[in-house]
Structure formats: C-alpha cells, structure tokens
Simulated assay, not measured.
Amino acid sequence: MSALDETDRALLRALSRDARQTAGALGRKLGLSQPATWRRIKRLEEAGILKGRRLRLDPQALGFGVTVFLGVKLAAKGRVSVEDFERAVTAIPEVQVVQHVLGAYDYRLRVVARDISDFERVLRRRIMTLPGAGEVEANVLLSEERRPGPLG
C-alpha cells in the first residue's frame, strides 16, 4: 500500500472515535462519496492498517469493579513450555489481555474481578495454579483515561 494521505488519516481518526459510523456518514464528514469512502476502508483493511472494529464493553457496568495488572515471571522456563502457560492463562475468563513481554516479568496480564475478594479468589485458585507460574506482582488500576492514538 502506498503511504497514507491526509484523507486516510482523517478517516482513521474518525473511525477511532466511533467505529459504528457508516461509510456514507464518514464520507459526508470527509467530503467523499459513500463508495469512495468504502473503497478507502477496504484498502486500509486489506493493507492490515485497519484490523476490524471492536466493541468496547464497560467492565464496571457489567459488575467488574476491579482491574488488576499482573506481572508474572515463569518459575522454571525449562520445565514448562511457554505454550502450556499461554494456553492455560487464556482459558481464564477474568484474564482480558495476555502480553508476552521483555523485562522483569515474562508476562503482563490484565485481569478483571467483581471486587478485591473476587480478585483474590482468581489469583489463588486460577493464576497461581497455572503451569509454570512463579513470581507475581499486582498493580490495581485506580483510574484510566483514553488517550488518542498516534493519529490523534
């Protein structure tokens, strides 16, 4: 794909604010026809720049009042495969995000729970029993602001 032009960038900014907009509505905002807007969206999808449109749920509205970021260090890298750990951790419904990272920990997890007691249950019964789980560090989310991305 050739470089993004200013219209592509404006289209991506508009979609990042509200991905539910129709091609017609987007086109009117950008001074394009509906078919021209749709072609640009398809081109951005085919190039791998636009990777779908996701629904964002509000965990608190669904009864999950606590979000915790966990740093997990594998206990014995030689004895347990990374694939076994990843397979097991992704099966835990409270774990929303699993990131394999470099640094002090091997993995970073985003975990939601109803409250601190529920998080303790998830930690003790599910996360600490994972194959290879070793040292764990927890950081409780106090607040979160959504920041505009690089196209801002």
Rank of each mutant, 00 (worst) to 15 (best):
A76R: 13
D5C: 06
A23Q: 06
V97W: 01
L109H: 01
R146Q: 13
L30R: 03
E83R: 06
D118R: 03
S16L: 05
P59S: 12
M1G: 14
L55K: 11
Q34L: 04
V122F: 03
S2V: 11
V98W: 00
R108E: 14
S143M: 10
A10E: 11
Y105P: 00
L130M: 07
Q96A: 09
V111F: 02
A61C: 04
R108P: 00
K51W: 03
V82P: 00
M1P: 05
L50P: 04
R56T: 12
G48E: 09
V112T: 05
R124P: 00
D18A: 07
R87T: 15
A36R: 03
D58K: 11
A61G: 15
E86G: 01
D115T: 10
L62I: 08
A75V: 04
E145F: 13
V98D: 01
A3D: 13
M128R: 15
R40I: 04
A104E: 15
V97R: 14
A91P: 04
P93V: 11
G103C: 06
I116Y: 06
W38H: 11
M1K: 13
A104L: 12
R125H: 12
V82Q: 11
G132H: 01
V68T: 10
L62Y: 10
G78R: 07
G27C: 09
K73W: 04
A75E: 09
A19N: 15
Y107F: 15
G63I: 07
A3V: 14
R124A: 15
P59F: 09
